[in-house]
Design a protein around this nucleic acid. Structure first.
Lengths: 194, 194
DNA sequence: CAGGACGTACCGCCCGGTCGGTTTGTTGTC
DNA sequence: GACAACAAACCGACCGGGCGGTACGTCCTG
């Protein structure tokens, strides 16, 4: 409760500054000042500046993974599951917009072991999603004339790009956008029927 | 010819290093060493490290803009023009993959006036593309049940994401990918006919 | 011998990180 | 409940280093 207050406010400040200024151009001094703590306090809870970045990634990756697995576990027709996953990941990504900004912008700044782990966990997510698409293709619901890797990249691109254009202050709510993007995606990857 | 040799090799080295290591984590010393020149020589042709970044952006933006305008100038049915633009920008983006990597990763590192100009020129491109989509909607060829801004973001996301997943060493050629992504995009934004 | 094209030594700054010390909190003892 | 004993939490002055950038000399070309 109290011990986490420092760590929490530091993380919050770091996320805010990293997402607006970038990781490299944000100094530890700025972070602790924004968080209202001292450098000593921060380095008591975190080993390095790198730690802060990784903590942000860790939280985001855990959350996304958990949500994906929950939806898949609920079961249902493949295309329905796919639809649920798509809308959910778009909505979650909008909730985590600052994290997303930092993620794609600063991943290459992580030190080697950590970057490896982030890559590994992203691949896990990717593979689980790919399995879903594969199932859809096997069932004849999804088109096979485009390589699966392209279909998947086509989906992740939307999620990825959100932090570059979406603004909560804009005209569309996150629910609408999630619906619309999912619709666009599914329309493009399903087989032409009737 | 000779005067540009230094500037060229510096820019080439900078692009290479920026795209692999990131802008902030690449020192001017590294760049000049990789380019085989000295710091003095570099600072004779460029005013700052920032200059190098902007030069990369400038080249990329000019090229994309020029290609867009050439295709639009050729005229034709709106959907055909749109298709041509899409495949072309995907192909060009693949040709400029390192530039794209640097672009989306380090744009926020540009100093204020330059970032403003980059934003302005991107908006120019965006607006021209948006006009094309609007024309398609007016003609009844493109769907209007999804906000135009979402349709456009949906397209740019594919282009944007290329530098994160596409590899020339991979199984798909740039021509194939361009065709496939264009197909996915157009399928999702055209009205259901038949 | 003038002036652009460089080479080199150097500067001030600020960064991430440290470290000895102080405060605050917890526990055990009588 | 007073207090010693100890640990965890926290402070902030300080450090070495590497950064972007510069000053100035030198060389080459016309």
């Amino acid at each position: 409760m109290k011990t986490t207050n420092v760590a929490d406010s530091v993380l919050k400040a770091a996320l805010d500054l990293f997402s607006t200024q970038g990781y490299a151009t944000t100094s530890v001094q700025q972070i602790v000042e924004a968080a209202g703590v001292t450098k000593g306090a921060m380095y008591h809870y975190f080993q390095s500046k790198d730690d802060l970045l990784f903590a942000i990634y860790d939280r985001m990756l855990s959350l996304q993974k958990r949500r994906l697995e929950e939806i898949v576990a609920r079961g249902g027709a493949t295309t329905d599951v796919l639809r649920a996953v798509c809308t959910d990941v778009v909505e979650t990504s909008i909730d985590l917009l600052p994290e997303g900004t930092v993620f794609f912008r600063s991943m290459h700044m992580l030190t080697e072991p950590r970057r490896k782990e982030v890559t590994r966990r992203r691949r896990e997510y990717h593979d689980e999603f790919a399995a879903l698409v594969a199932r859809g293709q096997d069932e004849g619901a999804l088109r096979t004339d485009v390589p699966r890797s392209v279909l998947i990249a086509h989906f992740f691109s939307d999620v990825h790009y959100l932090s570059y254009w979406y603004s909560p202050a804009g005209p569309e709510t996150k629910t609408e956008v999630a619906q619309q993007l999912t619709d666009l995606f599914l329309r493009s990857i399903t087989v032409e029927d009737r």
